[in-house]
Design a protein around this nucleic acid. Structure first.
Length: 282
DNA sequence: CCCATCGGACTCTCAATGCA
DNA sequence: GCATTGAGAGTCCGATGGGA
């Protein structure tokens, strides 16, 4: 029985795909890809560390345990530990208002120049953001260190343009890539991390990155490749509003996810969340 | 090996502030 | 009105220790 790699849950190591799959995708387990994709950087350009990414709202269990959560409910950690039913967003305190802040310090020109194209955070991390594109993505745009399978320009703007609808749900731009089925692999028995029975549709939706690196565990047996839309603006001239997450939006077979159709969730996605390649746009 | 705990570094959010 | 700033609030890394 395969189990969810606890390291990838708590130790933040990314799931290592089978060696034969390592060229396919380097995403971390939880749909929150870490950029830059350090495995494609030359050794002398390996960043000290990548920027940590946070979910908007950790569930109560992860919050209490100070462990990494994810946007799905139940989150992976709660699924693993059997807290699926209790996996709910933690309450956030209202931000204080009316706090006086005093006059702002003016940054000198040198500082401004030093981070003219960086965020304060990325400057801290030594990661330069160029025109809204993460550093490695920028390199990819120029054709350098492009991971196999990623066409130039595959990466979305960083952060992605996300606006909010009147009801507060985030609105994402239409994806410019979709996933095309790749070559069929050896058929594998349908497995689920927690059951040999049918997957409970209320369980964690395993529709996100699995096809890229754990086909043996999750099936389908097709790899998928990101393909550029012929005409993104023609396919959807407006921003796409994502419905709130609902387990019914998922199926146990991620091959059935129509990555060109209305995305299945994303209402809780971070503003600067990278897009995954599985079409759920989070 | 797995899990719980937790200090503190890190990240994100957004009201206050400043400027055109 | 919009951009910038920076403090508050929250996340979660990583070390540590206990139990099976």
């Amino acid at each position: 029985m395969p189990s969810i790699d606890s390291k990838s849950l708590d130790g933040e190591e990314t799931l290592e795909p089978p060696s034969s799959l390592q060229h396919l995708h380097p995403l971390s387990y939880n749909s929150m890809p870490v950029y830059p994709y350090t495995h494609v950087l030359p050794a002398n350009q390996q960043p000290i560390r990548t920027k940590r990414r946070q979910v908007k709202n950790a569930c109560t269990h992860c919050q209490k345990a100070c462990k990494k959560c994810d946007d799905a409910r139940p989150c992976l950690r709660c699924v693993k530990y059997g807290y699926s039913d209790e996996c709910v967003d933690s309450q956030r305190k209202e931000r204080k208002k009316g706090v006086k802040r005093g006059p702002y310090k003016k940054r000198d020109g040198k500082d401004r120049a030093a981070c003219s194209v960086t965020t304060s955070d990325s400057a801290q991390q030594g990661a330069t953001v160029v025109n809204g594109v993460p550093p490695q993505a920028a390199a990819n745009l120029s054709g350098a260190y492009l991971p196999i399978g990623y066409p130039p320009g595959f990466y979305p703007p960083y952060p992605p343009m996300v606006t909010k609808s009147p009801n507060g749900a985030p609105i994402y731009p239409p994806p410019q890539y979709y996933l095309a089925p790749g070559p069929q692999l050896q058929p594998q028995p349908q497995l689920h991390p927690h059951s040999t029975q049918d997957v409970d549709p209320n369980q964690y939706p395993h529709s996100q990155p699995q096809p890229f690196y754990q086909p043996a565990l999750f099936s389908p047996v097709h790899y998928q490749y990101p393909m550029h839309r012929q005409d993104p603006s023609a396919s959807s001239s407006t921003m796409t509003q994502y419905p709130p997450y609902s387990p019914s939006n998922y199926t146990k077979n991620s091959a059935t996810i129509n990555t060109q159709a209305e995305p299945s969730h994303g209402a809780t996605n971070e503003r600067n969340e990278d897009h995954t390649l599985t079409g759920s746009s989070d």
